[in-house]
Computed example of a mutant assay.
Amino acid sequence: MRDKRAKFVELAEARVNRTVKDIQLIGNLSNRSAYAYTDEDIRKIFRALQKELDAAKARFGGENSSKEEGFKL
């Protein structure tokens, strides 16, 4: 059982931290001096991200919100 927990913690921390970094990179696309985009483009991006986040949350059966620097279990 401990091996399953250790593997979960290892993978969850790596995946969440990677995802947070990728979301920050998406935020960098807001630089209008480097990129051209429409309000509809932004709605599509965030609608897709929210849809996947909601689906992942549903698989766990709940919500757990936290504001931390980096993700740790």
Rank of each mutant, 00 (worst) to 15 (best):
residue 36 A to I: 06
residue 25 L to E: 09
residue 65 S to A: 13
residue 72 K to T: 11
residue 57 K to Q: 13
residue 11 L to H: 03
residue 56 A to S: 07
residue 59 R to P: 01
residue 24 Q to I: 07
residue 68 E to K: 10
residue 61 G to D: 02
residue 50 Q to W: 11
residue 15 R to N: 02
residue 9 V to I: 11
residue 16 V to F: 13
residue 60 F to S: 01
residue 28 N to Y: 06
residue 17 N to R: 06
residue 44 K to N: 14
residue 29 L to C: 11
residue 35 Y to A: 11
residue 11 L to D: 03
residue 69 E to L: 09
residue 5 R to W: 04
residue 10 E to N: 04
residue 58 A to Q: 15
residue 21 K to F: 01
residue 26 I to C: 12
residue 71 F to P: 00
residue 12 A to Y: 10
residue 36 A to S: 13
residue 70 G to S: 13
residue 33 S to L: 14
residue 12 A to H: 06
residue 68 E to Q: 13
residue 64 N to L: 08
residue 31 N to P: 01
residue 52 E to Q: 12
residue 71 F to E: 02
residue 70 G to E: 05
residue 58 A to W: 10
residue 73 L to D: 03
residue 65 S to W: 12
residue 57 K to T: 03
residue 30 S to Q: 10
residue 29 L to G: 05
residue 37 Y to L: 08
residue 68 E to H: 07
residue 6 A to T: 07
residue 23 I to K: 03
residue 49 L to I: 12
residue 13 E to G: 02
residue 67 K to P: 00
residue 48 A to D: 11
residue 65 S to I: 15
residue 21 K to P: 00
residue 35 Y to Q: 04
residue 59 R to K: 14
residue 43 R to L: 15
residue 26 I to K: 08
residue 35 Y to V: 10
residue 28 N to Q: 14
residue 55 A to C: 01
residue 12 A to C: 07
residue 61 G to P: 01
residue 7 K to R: 12
residue 53 L to S: 10
residue 67 K to A: 05
residue 50 Q to G: 08
residue 24 Q to L: 11
residue 36 A to E: 14
residue 15 R to G: 01
residue 27 G to F: 04
residue 50 Q to K: 15
